[in-house]
Every structure is written in C-alpha cells, then in structure tokens.
C-alpha cells in the first residue's frame, strides 16, 4: 500500500476487530481503538471499479472522495481502499472519462 491513503503508512497496521462471541464485547457500548481497527467498508452495496484503460490520471476522484478511500499508486493510477470505501459513487459520478463504474458487490 502506498501513500495518499487515509492513514498513510499506518495503513499497514490496520486490523479489523471482529467479535465472534458475546463474551468478547465490552460490557458498555464503547468503541475500542480507532478506525484502524473499525473498518467501515462493509456498509456498502456497490463498489467502484477502476478501468485503467480509460483513466487519464486527472485525480478528480481522489479530490472528491469524502472518505478519503481513493489513493494513488506508485504507477500514478488510482485505486480504492475497500476497507473504508462506503460505496457512495461520487468518484464514478465525477470521473470525466467514465473510468470508474459502480458494480454490485458479491458478499
């Protein structure tokens, strides 16, 4: 994972907390850790998919992503951090070359 993500290099430490038994939960509803351990990407229904053949590296998607979950790879193309992308579709809407399409996510 490269720079320009939500957490920069800290992204490497990201690990989602998943409770598999009621006993693992805290007694009171307090959230443990930061967003590094509380992924928000599982709220979505549709995911943005980038077609590099059409991408012109304008980075409008990168600017508009409210999360931000779009990052710029070393080769200059954009990619999506699916741990945090909520599937809002703003990137696909803003893309001038229609290089980003919203597709139903299989879960």
């Amino acid at each position: 994972m490269s720079l320009n993500t939500l957490f920069g290099e800290k992204k490497a430490e990201a690990k989602k907390i998943v409770f598999t038994s009621v006993d693992q939960y805290p007694e009171a509803p307090i959230s443990l850790g930061t967003t590094l351990s509380n992924f928000t990407g599982d709220w979505r229904t549709f995911i943005p998919v980038v077609n590099e053949d059409k991408c012109v590296k304008c980075y409008i998607c990168w600017k508009f992503c409210p999360e931000p979950a779009i990052y710029i790879k070393p080769d200059g193309y954009v990619a999506v951090d699916y741990d945090y992308c909520k599937g809002c579709g703003i990137c696909a809407n803003e893309c001038p070359t229609k290089a980003i399409t919203m597709e139903k996510e299989e879960k």
């Binding site: 009171a28 509803p29 307090i30 959230s31 443990l32 850790g33 930061t34 599982d42 709220w43």
Partner: peptide, 10 residues
C-alpha cells in the same frame, strides 16, 4: 487507547 462512548453499532 482512545475510545468513544455511545458510538454506532451496526
């Protein structure tokens, strides 16, 4: 570690 009280639960 920082934590928040009464936050969202999905």
């Amino acid at each position: 570690e920082p934590f928040s009280v009464g936050s969202l639960a999905t």
